[in-house]
Write a protein that binds this DNA or RNA. Structure first.
Lengths: 254, 254
DNA sequence: CGTCCGCTTGACAACTGTCAACTGTTGTGG
DNA sequence: CCACAACAGTTGACAGTTGTCAAGCGGACG
């Protein structure tokens, strides 16, 4: 339990946060691509200008389902959500993972009907905003519109990064990048980045990264063998990041 | 020149259109995922509510470049544009192809700086709209905001379809899907769909689909060998769609 | 006319998927 | 409380798709 290694730059831990399982720490230096955004002030802006509806979800519950009419956009206030795209022939694709502060529901804007499903992977809380009300408020408050567009732009950028990843990187590198991106997401929210709790099966990770669950398992085993990561006891979903530099190096070569 | 086969449902050809190389025909039944949108009325709405700046580009010219400040959004009025995402380590990824009526520039909304490059693959004309002016006008005209958001939603949906394609389909199927999608794009614009002019090298197609140029070449050769497509004379970039049903069948099985 | 570039094709190698066996954990019902 | 089934994960052997390398062809263009 206390075997989790800590990065040396953790000099002081802030008070415990209402955040799933993870203990917050000082904000860390950000990566190049994923610059921090003031999601806390965004949440405040939203609370001040709009009425919201809170919704608590258990793991497995859907925020929205494919085909549903787009009536709300959502902001994830706590927990962890996966977004699945469904093809008519039965293929499923995990296209995005969402953390605190992320928006949900943009995939419904093209046709007014959601083209994806958003499923909670952990106990989660979302704030639901009526799409119409959001648009109306945006007309009054340009700041709100900017916030919305920034979020959409980030989603677009993320999807394209994902596409580049599966198109240009070999399987092992994709797994390494997956872990790095997870770390960045935690860092951007001021959470500790020395250990991550994958609340997904190997099959889900594999689907997300375009490979089989066996390849995911092998890649993780190799990273562990090389002391880049380690697992907490027998819990193979709790990953300690032993050497972030080595992990990022894995993305580039091989 | 006249060797191009015609689908039997072409009973009458409308007058020639100012569209690159392709001759328009009756609008065809749309696919499930890519529903038609009234891009012509969108163009009219835009011309009525905003001042626009026309810009003509030659093949190779950039609509915008990565890193540039987001000052305009663009609507492609004619021609053909590719959008490239650039990684800091030099990798390049063709993430999107744009036809008439498509919007360009959303990738800059996350950070106010474009994260991609948009390069003309053919002589093209874009309409540039000041982003600030567009936002201001959207506050006045809700219809305009809806149009904008629909376009962003479509882009998001497209990117996720692309991700699912590279993650779940084998190389040959991806090539077939690429051709099908091209046909759908032509159909959605009322253009003839029996022949398409790829204004891209095999390497560009391969980059787009996450495979090597050799794999693209082999896949196209196989489709031609099976009479699903054919090439116009020696021009290996002009593809006739002989059997659209067989082509879509290629997406599913193998 | 010669070079460069795009494309095709073959031979081979390598990465990754498939199949199978095994372990360990979790949850359920007798 | 235990036996059992179901599920998640790991690992090995093997096969197959796809990448790599190379050669050759033909068109475009100076």
């Amino acid at each position: 339990m206390t075997l989790i290694a800590r990065h040396s730059n953790v000099d002081q831990l802030p008070p415990v946060w209402a955040w799933t399982n993870a203990i917050p720490q000082r904000a860390q230096p950000q990566s190049r691509r994923h610059t921090p955004w003031p999601w806390e002030s965004v949440l405040m802006l939203l609370s001040n200008t709009l009425t919201r509806q809170h919704r608590v979800l258990q793991a497995g519950d859907a925020v929205y389902r494919a085909g549903e009419h787009l009536s709300n956009l959502y902001v994830l206030n706590s927990g962890f959500v996966k977004v699945m795209s469904l093809a008519s022939d039965g293929r499923e694709q995990l296209v995005s993972l969402k953390w605190r502060g992320d928006w949900l529901g943009f995939d419904g804007m093209a046709t007014s009907h959601h083209s994806c499903e958003a499923l909670a992977l952990d106990t989660s809380e979302v704030w639901a905003f009526k799409y119409e009300a959001l648009l109306a408020a945006s007309a009054q408050t340009p700041e709100l519109l900017t916030v919305l567009h920034e979020a959409m732009g980030r989603e677009l950028t993320h999807d394209r990064d994902a596409l580049m990843s599966v198109c240009t990187l070999p399987a092992e590198a994709r797994v390494a990048e997956f872990l790095c991106h997870w770390v960045e997401s935690l860092a951007a929210r001021g959470l500790r980045t020395d250990a991550i709790t994958l609340r997904m099966t190997r099959a889900e990770i594999g689907n997300y990264l375009g490979m089989t669950l066996e390849s995911v398992s092998r890649a993780l085993s190799k990273l562990a063998r090389q002391q880049v990561i380690s697992f907490v006891e027998k819990r193979r979903r709790d990953v300690c990041i032993l050497d972030l530099k080595a992990l990022t190096a894995f993305i580039q070569r091989q």
